[in-house]
């Protein structure tokens, strides 16, 4: 266990998959999951770098990301529910009225 690079590469791969998911999926909940995937990928990189540098700051940062992600999920899902309640749809393409 002498190199952090594999972790980082895994992190980038997960991040990329997550971003493609955000771009291609239309179900708002799946989009949200993809966002979570990207956040987790970042956390992995943070924790890996913490180990690389031998201090705990990276872990603290990852901790904060988790807290913020929790808050974000709570509000985001509430928004999705509200939209679903009024529009009977959870597709992100249906909420497209705010435009030119």
């Amino acid at each position: 266990m002498d190199d952090v690079t594999p972790y980082i590469v895994l992190s980038t791969i997960l991040f990329t998959i997550g971003s493609v998911g955000v771009l291609t999926r239309r179900n708002a909940i799946v989009v949200f999951m993809s966002v979570e995937l990207m956040l987790n990928a970042c956390n992995l990189a943070l924790v890996a770098f913490a180990k690389q540098h031998g201090n705990l700051d990276g872990q603290v940062a990852a901790f904060f990301v988790m807290v913020v992600a929790a808050a974000e999920v709570v509000v985001g899902l509430a928004i999705i529910m509200t939209i679903f309640r009024t529009r009977r749809s959870a597709s992100v393409d249906d909420a497209s009225l705010l435009k030119y």
Partner: peptide
């Protein structure tokens, strides 16, 4: 330029990417 703002959040995300 305003045609770029088409209301689809996924298009916006694409431009972010």
């Amino acid at each position: 330029l305003r045609k770029v703002q088409n209301g689809f959040v996924r298009s916006y995300a694409l431009s972010v990417v």
